[in-house]
Design a protein around this nucleic acid. Structure first.
Lengths: 342, 342
DNA sequence: CTGAAAGCGCTTACAG
DNA sequence: CTGAAAGCGCTTACAG
């Protein structure tokens, strides 16, 4: 692999001049610049980003630690992050925590060792010493989707409270009275907020949320199955189930189907997070859609601000209810296409 | 951020000794080793991977360039790759080519500049000069899923021919006679192979595949919609459609539904690539399943071999037909759960 | 077992 | 406008 020395020799200039010419530094004569570019092209020279990073203390790399790559919501988020990052000249290294705190720490440690310029994280838990130390040490960091209370880091997320209230109104309006929720892990903000919003909305309408109607999930499909089984084994099973993410909804659907029951005839189902497949499930699933693309982009922009030494604002965008047939509502008159911006 | 010098000063030894102690080099006295570890812990020292890479010419990083992160097949592949890579001590940087050759080149260039130890690619096209030069220059490279004919790079992929033949037999057995396919891009091996296998299987059974029944897609949902619209506008529309990937199947389903038609009553549908949602679509979709996890792991192992200077074999694993209801078959007696290994 | 020194491939302040 | 030199933070052959 040709190095800057080889280019310098071929162009008959010093390595300093090669570096300046290639980095568009103004004080290089047109002739020198031309010779350098010609030599670089002839040798197929590509600057070594590792060496440059060591010298400049910048890697032009962002770390993104998400909870689960197999979750379409996070996949979409990762894609939006990558696009915006690329537009700003950054690469992104994705770490998949798989909802496991120790794996999250592993990725954060690796990313820090690689001296990424900044870190985007959707924390799996309440925050390890490692992550707290990194914040204290001044690592540019932004939380996306989930966050850690009490930690002074900008947060980019969706607020689902209004949409959850809309969902509860929708369910009650359709005659459902025994509403249950499959919650996410209590260690995550989204895990807690979605139950809280659900309970608050029910309370407003004078409906109770008994403990037996709160299933404890972990945002993965298997936990949706287990929670739903427990619901269906109850003496008085719920007549509507709200899954706090799309994978647990998939699990719930598995179980309901395995029991030979039908949605929405026997039980209503709704999910947090909308995904293209919800249009085509049997039945199409009512869901709360987050502005995923906007969240990803806003998070990258906030992180870039932080890296540049400025102090970005946290951003909160509203989620919205998308009504389909899984709660018993009438089928929308106009056939729906998946939202390309979701 | 503490550097090796700080640790050396704190431990009262040279940086050479710090380096040796931290890298478990045998010739370090127990006392020196202890002092170094204590100092490192006290300072919260973490070695700078950038500096180490510059010195050792290894980054312990693999590049993975895939065609589309939003495609669940590639997401699952990426996850398997990351897991196996982590087990072998590598990080992986994922580049999303979005089926665009120039974006693919952008990622390959960036990855090469970062001096990744090896590259896993699922090529979007027939191969740019950049990728060909990289192979020639000796960059350890392995193709996964798709490959470039005539390029001497190990290939890890699934062979779907037998499964496609099974699918054709299944369709004809159910009485379908006008079988159509939504093909992938001709510039990709998987794009070509799936049509070829389909045509060959039909030919064996004495059925023709007219040009009008070959829709040209690009592996993304929108192209599945367009191709299906064209099929349905035909004087004699097909009675069965085989989509060469899961996203085009999603698009086909969109269009069929938008026209008010029903699967499988009005038209049968099958897809290449199985994904968890196919169990829950209306109707559940018959699909050809690849051993995605095994492919991802095998690809990483092959790449690690190459990096170690050995010459790995190409590996080809069989895909298999998973019959559901979308072609008109009887519903399987036992309720199906998503295959956790898919 | 240990340290001084060279060197990985760049960038940049300094001097000219 | 240009080059010699220092230095980023490591690892490792060499000498002791």
């Amino acid at each position: 692999m040709a190095s800057i020395k080889d280019v310098a020799a071929a162009a008959g200039v010093s390595v300093a001049t090669v570096s300046r010419a290639l980095n568009d530094h103004p004080s290089v004569s047109p002739e020198a610049r031309a010779r350098v570019h010609a030599a670089a092209a002839a040798l197929g020279y590509r600057p070594n980003a590792v060496a440059r990073s060591l010298r400049t203390h910048q890697t032009h790399t962002l770390g993104l630690v998400i909870s689960d790559v197999l979750n379409p919501y996070f996949t979409a988020l990762a894609r939006a992050v990558e696009e915006e990052a690329r537009a700003l000249g950054y690469s992104v290294i994705i770490g998949n925590a798989d909802e496991r705190p120790e794996l999250q720490d592993h990725h954060i440690r690796t990313l820090l060792d690689r001296r990424i310029d900044g870190l985007l994280v959707s924390p799996t838990d309440r925050g390890s010493p490692l992550i707290l130390d990194a914040v204290r040490a001044g690592t540019p960091m932004v939380f996306v989707d989930r966050w850690i209370p009490g930690v002074d880091v900008p947060v980019v997320r969706a607020d689902g409270r209004a949409a959850v209230r809309d969902l509860v109104t929708h369910l009650l309006g359709l005659g459902h009275r025994r509403l249950a929720i499959i919650a996410g892990p209590a260690a995550t903000t989204t895990g807690r907020e979605r139950v809280d919003a659900f309970r608050a909305a029910l309370f407003e309408q004078g409906v109770a949320l008994p403990d037996a109607y709160i299933g404890q999930g972990d945002f993965q499909a298997e936990s949706g199955r287990r929670a739903t089984e427990r619901f269906l084994d109850l003496a008085e099973p719920p007549d509507a189930v709200f899954a706090a993410d799309n994978l647990m909804a998939l699990g719930a659907l598995d179980t309901i189907r395995a029991r030979g029951l039908s949605v929405p005839r026997d039980i209503a189902l709704a999910a947090f997070d909308d995904i293209p497949w919800f249009v085509h499930t049997d039945p199409p699933i009512t869901a709360i859609a987050q502005p995923t693309n906007e969240l990803g982009r806003a998070a990258v922009r906030a992180l870039a601000e932080l890296i540049a030494g400025r102090v970005p604002e946290s951003v909160t965008l509203p989620a919205r209810l998308v009504v389909r047939r899984s709660c018993g509502a009438a089928f929308p008159a106009v056939p729906e296409h998946p939202d390309p911006s979701a």
